[in-house]
Amino acid sequence: CHSECLGNCSQPDDPTKCVACRNFYLDGRCVETCPPPYYHFQDWRCVNFSFCQDLHHKCKNSRRQGCHQYVIHNNKCIPECPSGYTMNSSNLLCTPCLGPCPKVCHLLEGEKTIDSVTSAQELRGCTVINGSLIINIRGGNNLAAELEANLGLIEEISGYLKIRRSYALVSLSFFRKLRLIRGETLEIGNYSFYALDNQNLRQLWDWSKHNLTITQGKLFFHYNPKLCLSEIHKMEEVSGTKGRQERNDIALKTNGDQASCENELLKFSYIRTSFDKILLRWEPYWPPDFRDLLGFMLFYKEAPYQNVTEFDGQDACGSNSWTVVDIDPPLRSNDPKSQNHPGWLMRGLKPWTQYAIFVKTLVTFSDERRTYGAKSDIIYVQTDATNPSVPLDPISVSNSSSQIILKWKPPSDPNGNITHYLVFWERQAEDSELFELDYCLKGLKLPSRTWSPPFESEDSQKHNQSEYEDSAGECCSCPKTDSQILKELEESSFRKTFEDYLHNVVFVPRKT
């Protein structure tokens, strides 16, 4: 048989008469490798580009789960590009990614509803959504962080984005990388972005840091009482949809009607710091009717980097990364020049730590249904340095008659930039024990000054392991946590139920 035959053949030295091919099969003959313009397919066939392209389009058009959109890589027609490569849609070739590779997620039936953290986790790592997304989240724990972890990498949506009755959302900033909504599939009414009845939605994105392009379709905003109209108009300008909307697409009466839409800028007039305090004062603000001013709200939190936005980490279910302080308005003076500047002394802060701070007014709604208010920009203030805590785990070892090696770990709280350490030492008198000992005694162990690591005695271990207080009263049991108490109650309830079950099964009433 021919060298490319495997198993047997019907005619000697003829690659077209093989029972099976050793390498690849091409047009009725066995070959060692697939010549151009053919590609290896499933490690035994040679196919042309049209064959591989037909497989790709067949799966793409069917949208069946589990099928493969075949691509070409290293002269092979394979189910998908290997790690580190992405497909070129024009020629199906796998090309190296520039940075992290995109991950295209194809949605069944063309859309997916995100109504819980669990459903959001199914899209973790996706960068391109081939379909439409509907966000409908009523509640949950730590929602802002969970949504950002699972949806934060999405850069492109081919269909539309719909935010509907998501009472738990305060902001859409968890879509931190969303840059493009194509609108290839539109919501009824030709809408590519749809926001309806979101009672706590206050911000779409921080438009000073976020760009969003909507290729096709219109915007729809109705019944978002805490979303200011200025935020919607800003989205029109940034996304390129200005002029597409009709009169009733953006409701003037049901958007922002319960919001404090600040239209003035508060400026800080005085800032002073110490290692654990920050004193702030800002310019006074009074609405047209000074009785509408209820006070100020001061927001602050630790910020290692200057990239904080107002609604980071917030949701309507209680999660809030900001510390909020309510401040009463100052006494009002008739003389504008003698107006008191409101302020606040922030206490209990960490030394040498940068804080993000902003302040906003708290006002009631005027009778004319106009909203007044003022808010400052987010500023960054760093507390002063102070003395560091003591170095940890000092170790001293003498390696000769004239040297001592000293080692330690950095302090747990540096409280500033540590530039150097101060080492103090003092000579001590020799131990009298060394002169009084009889060095001729056998088995004498000389006193040693070398360091030995501390260890816990058996008594201390027994005390720590004991669940009861000892007789001397030195140790006591740790208080039980809520989960331990709940577990004990469940076990007790189970024992009672099981005992009742045994009584009912074992003891049967005697027939009379």
Rank of each mutant, 00 (worst) to 15 (best):
P336Q: 14
S166T: 10
L227R: 00
N130Y: 04
F193P: 01
N190Y: 06
N399D: 15
T353G: 02
L186P: 07
P410T: 15
L108D: 00
L123R: 01
R332Y: 05
G217W: 01
L280Y: 00
V128I: 08
L294P: 10
P288H: 06
N334Y: 09
N340P: 07
P394H: 03
F290V: 01
Q245F: 05
Y191F: 06
D292Y: 07
I232F: 01
L219N: 03
L252V: 14
K277Y: 15
S338Q: 12
C317V: 07
I114P: 01
T361S: 12
P391Q: 05
L252F: 14
A120S: 09
A120G: 13
V381E: 08
K162C: 11
F358Q: 09
G152I: 00
I157D: 00
T364D: 15
K267E: 02
W207R: 02
T241V: 07
P391V: 05
E111V: 10
K301S: 05
K253P: 11
E187Y: 03
S192T: 01
V170T: 10
K242I: 09
P410S: 15
H106Q: 11
V238W: 04
L266I: 04
D289F: 09
I114V: 10
V359Y: 02
D292E: 14
Y160N: 04
K226N: 13
S338L: 11
S333Y: 03
P287R: 06
I214E: 00
L147H: 02
T213L: 09
D328P: 13
T241F: 09
S398G: 12
T323L: 11
E184W: 12
I154T: 05
R281P: 00
V363A: 11
G373K: 05
F193G: 00
W352Q: 15
H341D: 09
N334V: 08
K253M: 12
E302S: 08
Q339G: 13
N200K: 14
I378T: 11
T254F: 06
D315R: 15
I404A: 14
R247D: 06
V238K: 14
P287N: 01
S401H: 04
K337W: 07
G295H: 10
F268R: 00
D115H: 15
A251H: 07
S401F: 06
L252D: 07
G313T: 13
T215Y: 05
D384Q: 02
N334S: 06
R281H: 09
T127C: 06
G295F: 14
H106W: 03
D377A: 11
R281N: 12
L362M: 11
T254H: 15
E262W: 04
E283F: 07
K350Y: 12
I214N: 02
Y372Q: 05
G125V: 05
D115L: 03
D115P: 03
A374R: 03
F296P: 01
R164M: 15
C261Y: 02
S171N: 06
K253W: 15
G131V: 00
L151G: 01
Q258I: 02
N198L: 05
F175K: 00
E310H: 15
F296N: 05
Q314E: 12
E146V: 03
E187D: 15
A149N: 15
V359Q: 00
K267W: 07
E368C: 07
D326V: 03
Q354S: 04
L229V: 15
N198A: 02
P388V: 15
S319I: 11
P388W: 07
N136W: 07
W286L: 11
W207I: 06
G217M: 01
N141Y: 14
P394I: 13
Y160V: 03
S239R: 04
V397M: 12
R347C: 12
E184R: 07
L107V: 09
K337S: 11
L107Y: 03
A168P: 15
T241W: 08
Q199V: 12
N130T: 11
V128L: 11
R202V: 11
L294D: 12
K177N: 15
A120P: 03
S260P: 10
A195D: 00
V170S: 09
G295K: 13
Q121C: 09
K103S: 11
G110E: 15
